[in-house]
Amino acid sequence: MAEKQYDWKAIAKNPKFVELHHKKTAFLFGWWIFSCVYYFLLPIGAAYTPGIFKVKIIGVINFGYIFALSQFFVSWGIALYYSHVANKDFDRLTRELIDELHL
């Protein structure tokens, strides 16, 4: 526990915090929903549209295989993108907010 007492209500109303909160919420839930939709397309597609999964793309490698493999790269992509945005924007806003509070 912190020794210092913070006025949590005031911080919650601080414009910097409000900005942080809005940006973060939109980003986090937006990308989370995207990743869920993209993931569930795999079992749903495999079950209900197997025809598409069978289309051969390169040699004998079919769409289904590439789609499943793409899940890994999409997940990694989201993770790296999040890390980039968080390091650049969210952490900067947090630092600015904390600096302001210490003034």
């Binding site: 526990m1 912190a2 210092k4 913070y6 949590w8 209500k9 911080i11 919650a12 915090f17 942080l20 909160h21 973060k24 952490d91 947090t94 630092r95 907010l97 904390i98 509070l101 210490h102």
Partner: peptide
């Protein structure tokens, strides 16, 4: 809630937090 929400977003009030 304000306290929880500020804490979870900023790490304020935690030992060895970002400050």
């Amino acid at each position: 809630f304000d306290e929880v929400y500020v804490r979870q977003n900023t790490g304020l009030g935690m030992a060895k937090a970002v400050e």
